[in-house]
Design a protein around this nucleic acid. Structure first.
Length: 473
RNA sequence: GGCUGGAUGGCAGAGUGGUCAUGCAGCGGAUUGCAAAUCCGUCAACGCCGGUUCGAUUCCGACUCCAGCCUCCA
């Protein structure tokens, strides 16, 4: 890519879109908060995974060398509890869930991050970080064995989410823990009960608090200061606020330049979340819809806006994708940039949409426009242009991790036919029978066969090249 | 109560100080033995009240409503 306009990214810290300038020209260091692996991933997790996958892909397309780090929290209270309930070790539980997460991601077309550090592999670094904080007076060991962060000592506390410490305290619903110096202090190291998994430390056996692991892993993997830190909508407070406090207190340097947060997935206007119990796992949805339909649904709205999950939204997403794949069906894509360039300006429009804080809905609008031109070229029997536009459509779609399937497979609903009893061979046989009927001008019989298949969800299309079929939506 | 976002046509969803978002759905036409797909055309919107402006859906202020965070949550 040669000199493009500037890439702008919305920064939660400044609440503005800003021109993105990495610390080191051409390189992007990005850390995203991953998940706590005690259960299957739901669509809220999928949103974050897909959003930052799209962002990484686009940054790379734009020529940046991206180092994408996303952690795995494999030790925490909920993991202990769940492992105990399941009567398995925490290692067994977390391995199982990590494997499931990787399978789900792969289906959604999410590329693996460059590294996925696990909290339990960074205990030494975490302890070192806490020691540094203790030496600088930002951490203290309490009489119960826990180590806490002294929030009031960090002057800029609250910068990310605009919090005022005194007002927070006034409205605080947090129970006052008598071991803390101040109710706002949060735990860095948690003393273990005798039977709990634990690691030795200068403060006794225990485990890391939630926030400290991200400070340790991000700075270990990317340096004291890095370009982008991302996560879900529920993380700015307290998690990211606490990360800033820990990291900047320890290093004395700015922690992160650009903070990015994905929007929520809602169900009936309420946030999808584990605590509300209104979540759908990625697996639930994959039972009924192709993974790319989910990916499209997630990318058809801007990554920062809330989206409402509903059956009808998935159906709409599938219809929209069908339009793309219908345009691509039975066409061999052939690269021909000159021919494409002489016909339209889709590529530059696509890039300017994406340059504007990754505006995928607008990018899709460009692709729909491209699809229309492709269909038009087909009507005019302009084969070279048709093939070139098909290539362009797939190529631009690929930047978002979309439109890479075989069109015929998608339209025949390969992911749906699992539940269908009808066999493709049977369909082909009926199509042949119908062809013979048509040749005899026995249209009544031809229509009967069409209707028979239609009642089983199969749609026939007669074209000049013969009859093909798709799965009705 | 504090702090963030948001309110766009039947639905979803971008965007803009003054002619087009886009997709689905609808309507009319082309095409088709029929149908589907496709193409052409078409309908239709900017929560409410003020202000700035020649002109505001877009900027500013008030209001109403919705959501998120303030407690583990992506």
């Amino acid at each position: 890519m040669k000199s493009l306009p500037q890439l702008k990214i919305y920064n939660t810290l400044t609440r503005k879109k800003e021109v993105f300038t990495p610390l080191e020209a051409g390189k992007v260091k990005m850390y995203v908060c991953g998940i706590t692996v005690y259960d299957l991933c739901h669509l809220g997790h999928a949103r974050v995974m897909v959003a930052f996958d799209m962002i990484t892909r686009y940054l790379r397309t734009r020529g940046y060398e991206v180092n994408y780090v996303r952690n795995i929290t494999d030790i925490d209270d909920k993991i202990l509890k769940r492992a105990d309930e399941n009567n398995e070790t925490i290692g067994e539980l977390t391995e199982r869930m990590i494997k499931a997460m990787h399978e789900d991601e792969a289906k959604l077309g999410v590329l693996r991050p460059d590294s996925e550090p696990r909290a339990t592999a960074y205990i030494t670094e975490i302890i070192n970080l806490i020691q540094t904080l203790e030496e600088k007076g930002y951490a203290y060991a309490a009489s119960n064995g826990d180590v806490y962060y002294r929030v009031r000592k960090f002057e800029n506390y609250g910068q990310l989410t605009n919090r005022n410490l005194d007002e927070m305290q006034a409205g605080s619903r947090v129970e006052v823990d008598s071991f803390k110096e101040d109710p706002l202090d949060f735990v860095l190291w948690k003393a273990a009960k005798p039977t709990e998994a634990s690691w030795p430390s200068p403060w006794g056996d225990g485990r890391p608090g939630w926030h400290i692991e991200c400070s340790a892993m991000s700075t270990c993997c990317l340096g004291n200061t890095f370009d982008i830190h991302g996560g879900g909508p529920d993380l700015p407070f307290p998690h990211h606020e606490n990360e800033i406090a820990q990291s900047e207190a320890a290093t004395g340097q700015k922690y992160v330049n650009t903070w990015m947060h994905a929007g929520a997935v809602r169900v009936d206007q309420e946030k999808m979340s584990k605590s509300l119990g209104n979540f759908f796992t990625i697996r639930d949805v994959l039972e009924k819809y192709d993974a790319e339909v989910i990916r499209y649904l997630l990318l058809a709205s801007h990554y920062r806006s809330a989206i409402n999950y509903a059956e009808s939204a998935l159906q709409d997403a599938r219809k929209n994708l069908e339009r793309f794949y219908t345009a691509l069906q039975n066409i061999k894509p052939v690269e021909n940039a000159d021919l494409v360039a002489s016909a339209g300006e889709w590529r530059s429009q696509f890039f300017s949409a994406m340059d504007d804080d990754f505006n995928t809905p607008e990018a899709f609008a460009v692709l729909f426009d491209l699809a229309r031109s492709l269909n038009r070229a087909g009507l005019q029997d302009d084969q070279p242009l048709t093939e070139a536009l098909a290539f362009e459509l797939r190529d631009l779609g690929g930047i978002m991790g979309m439109l890479q399937q075989d069109a015929d497979d998608f339209l025949k609903g390969k992911a749906l036919t699992r539940q269908q009893s009808i066999n493709p061979d049977v369909i082909e046989t009926l199509i042949e029978k119908r062809l013979l009927a048509k040749q005899d001008r026995n249209f009544a019989e031809a229509d009967r066969i069409r209707e028979e298949l239609e009642s089983q969800g199969i749609l026939l299309k007669d074209t000049k090249d013969g009859t093909s079929w798709t799965k009705a939506s």
